[in-house]
């Protein structure tokens, strides 16, 4: 599982950071950083929640 963020869509609402702060971080510059682009299967449910709850639908999961 690889996390893909469309940074043209991302508005840094930081919803993903609240769900998975170990994977997503919005820093003081207001930009989103992916801390772990390829989390393990144990994190899938949380990442899927991030995908679903992103207000801009900017996050997706690539299976490769």
């Amino acid at each position: 599982m690889r996390i893909v963020v469309d940074f043209d869509l991302c508005e840094s609402n930081a919803v993903c950071m609240q769900i998975a702060p170990d994977i997503f971080e919005v820093r003081d510059d207001d930009f989103l950083y992916i801390l772990d682009e390829t989390p393990g299967e144990a994190d899938r449910a949380r990442v899927e929640e991030c995908v679903q709850r992103c207000p801009k639908q900017a996050i997706s999961i690539a299976e490769d």
């Binding site: 930081a14 950071m17 609240q18 919005v26 207001d30």
Partner: peptide, 12 residues
């Protein structure tokens, strides 16, 4: 106001 990081921390 332009503080998404803080909003989500305090929201928690």
């Amino acid at each position: 106001f332009n503080r998404p990081r803080h909003v989500m921390r305090y929201r928690a």
